[in-house]
Structure formats: structure tokens, C-alpha cells
Design a protein around this nucleic acid. Structure first.
Lengths: 135, 135
DNA sequence: ATACATGCAAATAGTTTGCAAGAAG
DNA sequence: CTTCTTGCAAACTATTTGCATGTAT
């Protein structure tokens, strides 16, 4: 990593992600930034998003299918992914450290980190589904 | 899902995955099957792998970067992914159910499943690294 | 002035799909 | 003979990269 210069585009991308709580995709960021910088390219968005991830200012969430998502919350936490609408919500879990210790007990090798992701149906989809059944 | 016909290719793909304990990628399966069916196409491999996943005979593992991997072990277990060589190892964890209960307590919505993945350096890479340092 | 950042377009990786021909029931 | 499966190639999605130009320091 060489020295970094200021860029208005990067500033705007950082602000967008930090104020967006929907765990946006690169495309969503692109669409958002285009309102301010109509000529910005998707390549620039991708380049800056990975840069911000490297700097630890945002976080990348890989999903099973579909594009990566980005998270302004850099504190340790888990994610819930709705299998119906693909929305992602944060979940706070108390004391998740000991899971690594438990795993380490039956494992040869050095465990450095772990990620837990939950799947299910979000509140909004549950509500929509119950409307459908009533009809 | 309509009725399914027998195919020698599918049979071979199933056998290959069930006897391969390295969590192969679609490409690795393709390469393996080609020894028996030199004309098989990658499309057929992909089609059959997803079919076998749907049938619950094998499991798909999505990774942060790089291709999906396939697992003959359909019993609930976790994975360790080596961030150096990308190898995947199974990890057995006792009682992982209560994590979902814990998560459900602070969450509006229906949690149906969860996946925990561990990251670190596998035994083999640790050994290789220590050789390098000595040199 | 120099080095980093941008926009654009082309390239890449992984996977999916349409279609005509082939095999299974 | 009808339906499912195959091989092939083209399409597609998400992301990365090369390069000439632009901007920050």
C-alpha cells in the first residue's frame, strides 16, 4: 500500500456507505454516488470500496449467491440474511470468542477468526407472507 | 422437480464427490470425471452438482473469494478455511443449536439456520511457514 | 513535477442457459 | 415415442485490470 491521495469520489463513497444502513452492494453505491458524480465509473467504486475495506473503514460481506455487500459497522457482529428478500440485518451476539476455543480443541492448525451468519425470514417478509395467505 | 432419469455421468459425479474429501470445486470434479468421460462438459458437471445439492446428497460451500466447493458430508458441521492455501477442513462442534436461540432473542424475524466458518492457517501451511523462516 | 486516482472499455472468473442431438423409461 | 440428459457454445453476473488522461500534493 503506497501513500494515498485525497479524492472527492472516495470521500463520497465513504460517506455513502457510512450513512447507508442497508448493507449496499457495489451497484447500489454506484447508483447513489452517481447523483453527485454522474460520470463516476463502476471501476472507481469497486477500487475505492476495496481500499476502504483494506483501511478497515468498512467491511465486506460475502453472500452465498449474488453480489458482495458492504457494511459501515466495523465492530464485531453477526449477520442475518433473509432468504426471501436478501436483506441483511445486524445481529449482536454476546461472547462469541469461546466458539473459537471450542473449535480449536478438535483442530490441528491455527484458528484466527470466525464468522457466523444466520438465515431465515425477516420481519417484513413474514408480514407480507401472512397477508398473502389471508387473501 | 420432475421425475429423474438415470445417467452414467451423474452417477460418476456423485461417486467422485462422495469419495473425495478435499471439498472439490466444480472444476476439480470436472477434471476427475473427464478421466472416465473425456467428452463430458462443464455444464453437465454444474447441472448435476446443483441437482445433487437439491436432492440433499451433497452440500455446497460458498467461499468469500474463489469458486464454490462441494462436500460429501451432509451431516451438520462447520468448516475451517485456510487463508493461505484455501484448503477446507471439517470441524465438529458440539451443540450449536443454542447459538440460534441466543441470536433469536435480540431479533425480530424467524431464524431458520446458521453457518459458522472458521479462518486461519492449516497445519500444513504452519509447517511450511516455519521451514521458510528457518532458511 | 511526480505519483496517485479516474473514466472507459476490455478482460476475467465462475456459473448458467438455449438448443439440437442422444439416451432412458 | 416421450421426457430427461448431454455436449457445445453463447450468455450472463460480479468483479478486476490496462491504459491514457486528470488531479492532488
Amino acid at each position: 500500500m503506497a501513500t494515498m491521495k485525497y479524492s472527492r469520489q472516495r470521500e463520497s463513497i465513504r460517506d455513502f456507505v457510512h450513512s447507508c444502513h442497508e448493507h449496499p452492494t457495489a451497484d447500489m453505491v454506484y447508483a447513489g454516488i452517481r447523483e453527485e458524480f454522474p460520470n463516476i465509473s463502476l471501476g472507481t467504486v469497486y477500487r475505492n470500496l476495496s481500499l476502504l475495506v483494506e483501511l478497515g473503514e468498512i467491511t465486506k460481506i460475502s453472500t452465498d449467491s449474488g453480489p458482495d455487500r458492504f457494511d459501515c459497522n466495523t465492530k464485531p457482529h453477526s449477520h442475518f440474511i433473509c432468504t426471501q428478500c436478501q436483506c441483511i440485518r445486524d445481529i449482536e451476539l454476546p461472547d462469541t470468542e469461546y466458539i473459537e476455543k471450542m473449535a480449536a480443541e478438535n483442530f490441528d492448525g491455527e484458528i484466527i477468526s470466525h464468522v457466523t451468519t444466520f438465515y431465515g425470514i425477516c420481519k417484513d417478509c413474514l408480514r407480507k407472507n401472512s397477508f398473502k395467505k389471508e387473501a
